[in-house]
Design a protein around this nucleic acid. Structure first.
Lengths: 104, 104
DNA sequence: TTGACATATCGATAAATTGAGATATAATAA
DNA sequence: TTATTATATCTCAATTTATCGATATGTCAA
């Protein structure tokens, strides 16, 4: 767990919001995976365009943000067809919480 | 609690180290307040020059770091004579830990 | 295969941050 | 008062980050 990279990723309002929204995806985003042929378990993942619409920044900016959040381990992604679904990585978030509580 | 400012402050190795060292000041720094006339309770605070020596950066950089950490509420400072003693603000750190555990 | 759509990557530029040296301020000592 | 020490502030060049439009890549449908 690279704390510095994680804290850098968290130093941005939009990225912080994205993480917050993804705590309750069904509450904050439209239903996902509607156009998927097979029924797949998206595990609460949300596609880039839904996140972009909610955040109100450009596509490239949001794609970049999601990449930043994923590279430091705060998000996981899974591709299904044309869509990439991002969801929280609760494991890292838990470790981070423990780190702050005990080592920071 | 301004989370963005806190995360920015934590996005730096030296600042993270300073916070860590201040968890056990007596273990990580020389005795403080030696030259003080009256006996004062420094509450575990450590002066800038001790921190600078340990961190190995310039005086202005460390002074600036400590200011950054204080402005976002992670450190408290108290001046005694020529010295400014910095110590952790456990209250903010606890709130941050709670925030990460419940709201992030 | 071609076209349409979703996402990723590239390239550019403005804005913010970094960290240092120089200098100012504050407190004490001589 | 003046000198000395501790810390804070100022200034600046270098680096990093932000954000976008443009373009590339990948996937599916016609």
């Amino acid at each position: 767990m690279d704390c510095i990279e994680i804290f850098k990723a968290l130093s941005n309002d939009t990225r912080l919001n994205i993480l917050g929204w993804l705590r309750e995806p069904e509450k904050n985003f439209p239903p996902q995976g509607e156009s998927l042929g097979e029924p797949v378990d998206l595990k609460g993942g949300v596609c880039v365009s839904s996140i972009q619409e909610k955040a109100g920044a450009s596509q490239s900016t949001i794609s970049n943000y999601l990449d930043i959040l994923q590279r430091c381990g705060l998000l996981l992604s899974e591709r299904h067809g044309k869509w990439t679904y991002y969801r929280r990585n609760e494991e890292t978030i838990k470790k981070l919480s423990e780190y702050i509580g005990t080592r920071l």
